[in-house]
Computed example of a mutant assay.
Amino acid sequence: MSGKIISGIQQIGIGVSDVQAAFKWYRKNFGMSVPVFEEAAEAALMLPYTGGEPRSRHAILAINMQGGGGFEIWQYTSRKPEGPKFEPQLGDLGINIAKMKSKNVEATYELFNRRGLNVLGDLQNDPYGKPTFFVKDPWDNIFQIVTSNSWFQQRKTDLPGGPNGAIIGVTDIEKARTLYSDILGYDTVIYEEEGVFDDLKAVLGGDKKLKRILLRHSKPMEGAFSPLLGASEIELVVASNRKPKKIYENRFWGDLGYIHLCYDINGMQALKEECEAKGFNFTVDSANSFDMGEAAGHFTYIEDPDGTLIEFVETHKVPIMKKIGWYLNLQKRDPKKPLPRFMLKAMGMSEVKD
């Protein structure tokens, strides 16, 4: 294959202190109820970000059958995971907030309030005129609920779908766009503004002057999992009147918080060449195939201009129906061709119901 294919956001990595408690909370309140894999093992390939030593961990990759990306819920087992040394504000460098898509933001807002979740502030309209709000999980991660029309299947629920983007703190929007627009393909500007915004005031630092730009793709996604992953968006935010801090300064990958943003891709060599040509060298490369027990593939990492970790995964093997041992080898397929919907729906047979 001559070029790269980016099929969408595969998952957002979330470092937590209790992987099972987090999985239960996310499946109950966010519908992240299908474990694609679960593995307790040593993370031996992330040495640049784990203090130069392999670290033991327990990870669950959970997806939402309405569509969207997944959560890689990640807990250190060989050490106590650390939180940031300060309370991050909007615009600090790294993944500030995960975006979760909803068919009806108002109904999700009402549901979360009835459940007594930690909803931050009131329902507001974003600069595009769409309703939105924020909610914080028990581990202090903040999620933004946003409107989306991109769905794999719509269930009769007011729960959101999976993640469809992130708010990322950067120091320079144009510099950051060499990665997010030029390489990742977020080439369409939905809005770009500077000021103090009502829809952000419920988040720490959101009552201060900020620059923000919301980016989406102009072309539909391709690839095996594109119908499930769906459309996504990236919002870059700059703190206008203060020097931002690095959220993961003096901490390890896998510590508490949003540890990476991961894209499902095909054509790793073409992607490597493009990244290197634009100054984003792979900092981690699993070289050929890694095995996660129930899934396998090739993963790499780069850093955005401010050090935020972006992961790429070229999936080689994925469980479709684990109960009957149905695993799919993706290396023998046309990389642009989406998987049949019945195969993707079959992944839901592993759903955990409380």
Rank of each mutant, 00 (worst) to 15 (best):
K332V: 12
G325D: 06
L309K: 15
A296N: 02
K272D: 07
G293L: 14
K337P: 14
M343Y: 06
H298Y: 11
F312L: 11
D285W: 11
H316D: 09
D291R: 08
G279D: 14
M321K: 05
N281L: 11
Y327E: 05
I310T: 00
D285E: 13
Y327V: 04
P338M: 12
Y263N: 12
W326V: 01
V313R: 04
V284I: 07
Q269D: 15
N266F: 07
L339C: 07
D285L: 08
C275I: 02
K336E: 14
D334F: 06
E311G: 06
E303N: 13
K337C: 13
E311Y: 07
I324F: 01
E273C: 06
L328W: 02
I320Q: 01
R341V: 04
L309R: 15
S289D: 10
D334Y: 06
A296H: 01
P305E: 08
D304S: 08
N288H: 14
I302Y: 02
A287P: 01
P340K: 05
E276K: 14
K317Q: 09
M292N: 04
Y301C: 10
F299S: 05
R333T: 06
F280T: 04
F342R: 07
F299N: 07
G325V: 02
G267R: 11
D285I: 01
D306I: 02
E303H: 12
A295L: 10
N288D: 13
I310V: 10
K337I: 03
M343Q: 10
E294D: 12
H260W: 05
